[in-house]
Design a protein around this nucleic acid. Structure first.
Lengths: 228, 228
DNA sequence: CAAACCTGAGTGACAAAGTCACTGAGCCGA
DNA sequence: TCGGCTCAGTGACTTTGTCACTCAGGTTTG
C-alpha cells in the first residue's frame, strides 16, 4: 500500500501507462503493491525457480543473464526504471520456471505486485495489458538479437559495438570495466576478451590500462562495428 | 467465416481452450477467422517485416529460424497443430517487426485471424488470454534453451541429443536427414556436422550412409547426450 | 546406354574462439 | 614492506567455423 503522495506521484511519472489507465486501476495498483528496496547483488529470480512476484522498477538497474556450468555467463538484457522483467511476468502467468537469472546490478527500488493481481489486471485494464505486451515484445527482440550476435557475428565486432554503446551511456573516452565484466556481457571468456582488446590496441584504436579502456580512434571503431 | 460443422468440430478439437471459452467467443472466432491452406516452403513471416495476421495451426508444421548473412541458420522452435507463432502475436500486439523467419515446413492448414481481433480478444476472453500467454512463455523457454545450448554445450552432445530426439519422434534406428539439415537445426555448418558424425561412426556408435544415419549403440549415445 | 548434372558428403588448410594452467602486475591493508 | 587480492597476459592445446576443393551416388536426357 503506497500512501505518501510524493511516492505516488513518482510512480505515476515512472510508469506513464498508469496515466492512461482508469483512476480505479491506478488506485488498485498503488494499494495492492509494496515498495521494496533491494540491495545490489540481490537475486530476484534464480534459474529454474518459480517467480513469486513481479517487480516494477522505479530506480536502479536489474540484469538478466544466463550462466553456464563452466562459469561463463551472458547478459540477455537489463531492466531499467519504468520497466519490469516480463519474462518473470510470463512465467507467473503460465506457472513455468524462470529460464535465466535476474539480479540487481545496482540498488533497486521496485513496486512489487503479486502474481494473482498481475493475472487479474490483464483482463481488467487495457493500458496494463498493452504495457506488459510492449515489454514482452521488446524483450523477445533483445533476446533474439543476442542469439543472432552470438551465432553470426564476430567477437571483435561485438566487443567494439559494446564499447561504443557504453561510451554513449557514459560519455567520455574512458570506459571503466574489467575484461571479465566485458566477457560476461558478451558470453565470452576473459582471456579471449584480453586477446581481442590487445589486438585492437596493437592497431592503435584504443589503450588498455588496469580496470579501464581508453578509446582513441572512435571513427575507425565505429566503422569496424558496422562493417567488420 | 467457418460454416461447415465438421470443420468447426475439428477446430474445437485442435484448440481445446475454445471449449473453456464462452459460446459467444467461439462463434466470434469461427466467424471472423479464415481457413487457409499454405504450401510447404511458404514464408509466413520474414525477418524484419510486419506481421499481417496470426495463423492458428490446424495441421502441418511451421518452423521458426534465424538466418545469418553467411547462410548459416538455426531452428528456434516448431509450431505444431493447436499452437500458433506467438512471436507473431507479440509483434502484432506491439507493432514491432518480426525478429526471425517463419516458414511452413510441411503443408499447413491454419485458421487465420486479423491483428485487430487478436488484440481485442485479449481483453474480452480469459481463455484466449491464457492460451496466448501459455504459448509465449513456452516459446521464451525454448528460445532461452537454444541460447543456452549454443553458448554452453558442445556440438557433439547437441548433435547426439538431436538424433535421439528425432528417433523418439519417428521410431526406428534409421534417421533420414542430410548433414546440411542437421546443421540448420543446430546453427552449425555441414562440414562440422560431417566431421562430428564421422567421429561418432569411428567409435562404432552409428553408421552413416548417403541421406541417412543408423543409430547403433543407443544406450551409449544417451549417456553422451547426458554427461558429455 | 552413357554423358551431363545435381545433390550430398569428405578433406585439408587455415582462422576464430574457448580452455587450462600458469605468470606477472598493480594495489591495498596489516 | 610483506602478504594477499584482483586484474591482466601468455602459450599450448581443443573445438568450431570457413573456404576451396574433390568425390560419390543418383537422375535426367541426348
Amino acid at each position: 500500500m503506497i500512501t505518501d503522495p510524493t511516492q505516488r506521484g513518482r510512480i505515476l511519472d515512472t510508469f506513464p501507462f498508469l496515466r492512461a489507465a482508469s483512476a480505479d486501476f491506478r488506485d488498485t495498483l498503488l494499494d495492492s503493491g509494496t515498495l521494496m528496496r533491494l540491495p545490489a547483488g540481490h537475486l530476484i529470480c534464480q534459474d529454474g525457480s518459480e517467480c513469486a512476484a513481479l517487480p516494477l522498477v522505479l530506480s536502479g538497474i536489474g540484469r538478466v543473464y544466463k550462466l553456464g556450468e563452466n562459469g561463463r555467463e551472458i547478459t540477455l538484457y537489463r531492466v531499467e526504471p519504468g520497466q519490469s522483467c516480463v519474462v518473470t511476468a510470463s512465467c507467473i502467468l503460465s506457472g513455468r520456471p524462470f529460464p535465466a537469472i535476474a539480479e540487481c546490478e545496482t540498488q533497486v527500488e521496485a513496486l512489487v505486485v503479486r502474481p494473482s493481481e498481475v493475472r487479474q489486471w490483464m483482463g481488467t485494464s487495457t493500458p496494463w495489458r498493452e504495457y506488459v505486451f510492449g515489454l514482452i515484445a521488446g524483450r523477445l527482440q533483445e533476446v533474439f538479437g543476442v542469439l543472432d550476435a552470438v551465432l553470426f557475428q564476430r567477437l571483435d565486432q561485438r566487443l567494439v559495438a559494446l564499447l561504443l554503446g557504453m561510451r554513449k551511456a557514459a560519455p567520455g573516452r574512458d570506459i571503466r570495466m574489467t575484461h571479465q565484466a566485458l566477457a560476461a556481457e558478451l558470453g565470452s571468456s576473459r582471456e579471449v576478451i584480453s586477446r581481442v582488446l590487445k589486438g585492437l590496441e596493437g592497431q592503435g584504436l584504443l589503450r588498455i590500462t588496469r580496470g579501464h579502456i581508453e578509446l582513441l580512434d572512435i571513427p575507425e571503431l565505429e566503422r569496424r562495428a558496422r562493417e567488420g
